[in-house]
């Protein structure tokens, strides 16, 4: 039994050694050494450089904003779909998943065509006799791109959590005299918290390290933390500094996940994601 299990785990061990553990060790090695290979804290301390922490704040603000917007958009939708009876619900959920089948870069490039000065949106506004908007290459455009990209990651876990709530519980609440609003705030909302937390983690973490969207939709005018790391690797060829800054980001993500998990630990099990 045990031997059999170990045999099965072989591919996963190779996978996690080669693609998770090794890269992580390399990042830590590069991050804690300088060009000559001797130990240093400088690459981590470089976070205190105003350029770096300001870019970090930019990233946090944008990631926070897009997570919030995703949540505001996703929750009512997940609620409607999750409480909906009838067989078309699967098709409706499918509609929100289909964009995920398309490569996210292509979706961002498509957004670029919609938002640009002479793009589809402005053509539409012009057709309706309205003034054109200048959206492209701005913070707003970056946020739109991220919300568009990550929305399905927020919808699905919340939908699953709401779906799992026992119908009997809700009916019992109704029988005991709770009105619709009370059921929503005191039954559904608390019971869907694990889904909300999964959704937040799945949107916030990729958003905070995002740099491609900022390059394409932000016109490289707004420097995000991901851009700084990208620049250190690809432009300055300073892998040590790039790795050092990555470690700081990883620590931040670990810390925020720990906080999120603690918030959610009062609930039953987390919805798997």
């Amino acid at each position: 039994m045990t031997d059999n299990r170990r045999l099965w785990s072989g591919p996963y061990i190779i996978w996690s050694a080669g693609f998770i553990l090794l890269p992580l060790l390399m990042v830590i090695y590069y991050g804690m050494t300088n060009g000559d290979g001797s130990f240093t804290w400088d690459n981590l301390a470089a976070f205190a450089d105003p350029i770096h922490y300001r870019a970090f704040i930019n990233s946090v603000v944008i990631a926070f904003g897009s997570t919030l917007f995703c949540l505001l958009l996703a929750y009512p939708l997940a609620l409607i779909l999750g409480r909906r009876k009838g067989k078309n619900t699967d098709i409706l959920i499918m509609i929100f998943i289909i964009p995920m089948w398309i490569n996210f870069l292509l979706r961002i490039l498509a957004l670029q065509m919609i938002l640009s000065n002479t793009g589809i949106l402005n053509a539409l506004l012009e057709f309706l006799g309205l003034a054109p908007v200048h959206l492209m290459y701005s913070r707003t455009a970056i946020m739109i791109g991220m919300v568009y990209d990550y929305l399905p990651f927020m919808i699905l876990p919340i939908y699953n959590a709401i779906r799992k709530i026992d119908q009997d519980v809700i009916e019992a609440a109704g029988d005991l005299g709770a009105d619709g609003l009370t059921i929503l705030t005191r039954i559904i909302l608390p019971l869907s918290v694990p889904g909300v937390i999964s959704g937040i983690i799945m949107v916030f973490i990729p958003s905070i390290s995002e740099f491609v969207v900022a390059d394409i939709l932000g016109g490289s005018k707004i420097l995000l933390y991901g851009n700084v790391i990208d620049q250190e690797f690809n432009l300055s060829s300073n892998w040590n500094l790039g790795s050092g800054l990555s470690i700081v980001l990883m620590l931040f993500i670990f810390a925020s996940m720990a906080i999120m998990n603690k918030t959610g630990s009062g609930e039953e099990d987390m919805v798997s994601w």
Partner: peptide, 22 residues
Amino acid sequence: QKPLVEAYLVDEIRDAMIAGDA
């Protein structure tokens, strides 16, 4: 100059100029 700049681009310049974006 930065406040006047619409964007810093590389490969997208060609398409943006063809489309009349800048």
